[in-house]
């Protein structure tokens, strides 16, 4: 019986993994299609669609915008989210739990709702500059990732380490930099990656705040697919996918993927 159960579980696990990965494999295969219309079985391979990515209308400005917004919002979130997490984990803040819940609540909200709410909110206060509204909106998206990861990281951080550093000759800020930051490096890395990815591929919030000249990459990609569905988009997706895989692989080498999943420390 137990044997059978284990076999069922294994089949389930393998099946699910295939189910999750299959679309990614299909898109990777499609990106090497020699013909504009992707067809199975493949009749050869071509990399010409990769060459076309750069010539897509408005591709470079969108890529640049997405990178800018993702990097900036991640950087700001890392600093402010960490400080907030310290206040929650360390300070004798009354209602620290409520505060923590509020900080991570955007994670639980549908992106669409968040997008509409932000749009209405910004309009109400007359804040309409597209680039700036995008940045602020993406802060709302990225901050919860950072706050959640840093609160968890700080809960395991022993603040006596800072006192030890101080008695060894470090100033207080020096101790934070020399001891707390390196000890929390894995948390920073995890928070940074999730925050960057959450911002970089966000569609539902950005769509409400973008205008004709300020379009993030995901918005631009959806537009391409409506205009001309050829394998160029598959090539671009495959590139983004490879970038993500490399990022995750490198950070797994550094801190371990199981820590990112939050299953153990």
């Amino acid at each position: 019986m137990a044997r059978a159960a284990i076999i069922v579980c294994w089949v389930m696990a393998i099946g699910l993994a295939l189910f999750l990965i299959a679309p990614l494999l299909v898109i990777a295969a499609a990106s090497f299609s020699p013909t504009p219309v992707f067809d199975l079985p493949l009749t050869g391979a071509s990399t010409r669609w990769y060459g076309r990515i750069g010539r897509l209308d408005g591709f470079w400005p969108s890529l640049l915008l997405s990178l800018q917004i993702a990097l900036l919002s991640t950087a700001i979130s890392l600093v402010s989210g960490t400080l907030a997490a310290i206040a929650i984990a360390r300070g004798k803040l009354p209602g620290a739990n409520i505060f923590a819940t509020a900080l991570v609540s955007p994670l639980m909200m549908p992106g669409l709702v968040l997008g509409i709410a932000l749009l209405q909110g910004f309009r109400a206060v007359g804040f309409t500059a597209p680039w700036a509204t995008l940045l602020v909106a993406h802060l709302v998206i990225t901050l919860p990732y950072v706050a959640r990861t840093m609160i968890a990281g700080l809960a395991r951080f022993d603040f006596t380490l800072i006192e030890a550093a101080r008695t060894l000759g470090c100033t207080y800020p020096g101790s934070v930099l020399r001891v707390m930051v390196p000890a929390l490096a894995p948390s920073f890395l995890i928070a940074g990656i999730f925050s960057f990815l959450a911002s970089f591929d966000n569609y539902p919030v950005s769509i409400f705040l973008a205008d004709v000249r300020t379009k993030t990459l995901p918005i631009r990609m959806l537009q391409y697919i409506e205009e001309a569905p050829d394998p160029t988009l598959a090539a671009l997706s495959t590139l983004i996918l490879s970038g993500t895989v490399i990022l995750l692989f490198v950070s797994d080498r550094v801190v371990g993927l199981h820590r990112m999943a939050g299953t153990s420390d």
């Binding site: 006596t160 006192e163 030890a164 101080r166 008695t167 000890a183």
Partner: peptide, 27 residues
């Protein structure tokens, strides 16, 4: 504290996890 020249051995030891044994002592 950083100007007192007082050495402390804490109950939890408070060793720096990101440094080696030698790195801790050299700190």
């Amino acid at each position: 504290p950083h100007k007192r020249n007082v050495g402390v051995v804490f109950q939890s030891y408070a060793l720096f996890p990101h440094l080696t044994v030698a790195g801790n002592i050299a700190f």
